[in-house]
């Protein structure tokens, strides 16, 4: 009978870990195409203008389970002209959608904040729409140490 040497035991352990890691990733991550499709649904195919949006996210998120996100759009909130919708998508999660905020002139300021889950290091893309259909966008990368989608 073959005895299990120390080296062989280590090798077995390593491959077991490898198998586990691979199996743990449930499903594929969102593809860039899916992310683009999600944005296109919101913009109606128009290209948003870069800027006007301040995205507050940590550079490095140690725990992807809860990452604080805060958005401020530099735009007035009057009856005539206001930010009506803000879309948040993430390009490295199992699904690209994160949240869509709907604002009104009664919001006073074009701002929203929440806490999000991030599976891996990725870009957060924010698209804002005004009541007249103007579009603004910006993105920010977050480095994630421990993923937060339970995979």
């Amino acid at each position: 009978m073959q005895t299990i040497t120390r080296r062989r035991a280590l090798g077995l352990g390593a491959s077991a870990v490898l198998v586990l890691t691979v199996a743990d990733v449930t499903g594929a991550l969102a593809t860039p195409a899916e992310t683009d499709a999600e944005i296109a649904k919101f913009t109606g195919g128009k290209t948003p203008v870069q800027g006007k949006i301040a995205i507050d996210l940590p550079e490095i998120a140690e725990n992807g389970n809860t990452v604080p996100l805060s958005i401020v759009v530099d735009h007035p909130m009057t009856e005539q002209s206001y930010i009506s919708d803000i879309l948040v998508v993430a390009d490295g999660n199992p699904r690209p959608g994160v949240a869509a905020f709907h604002l009104t002139p009664a919001s006073g300021k074009a701002t929203a904040a929440t806490r999000i889950r991030l599976q891996t290091t990725q870009n957060i893309i924010v698209v804002a729409k005004t009541n007249s259909g103007q579009l603004f966008t910006d993105r920010k990368q977050v480095k994630v140490t421990i993923g937060g989608c339970g995979g």
Partner: peptide, 18 residues
């Protein structure tokens, strides 16, 4: 204010706005 929320929002959903 309203929000459409996906599973990518963390447990115990926290929402802040004005």
């Amino acid at each position: 204010f309203s929000a459409d929320i996906e599973p990518a929002v963390a447990a115990n959903p926290y929402i802040q706005f004005t």
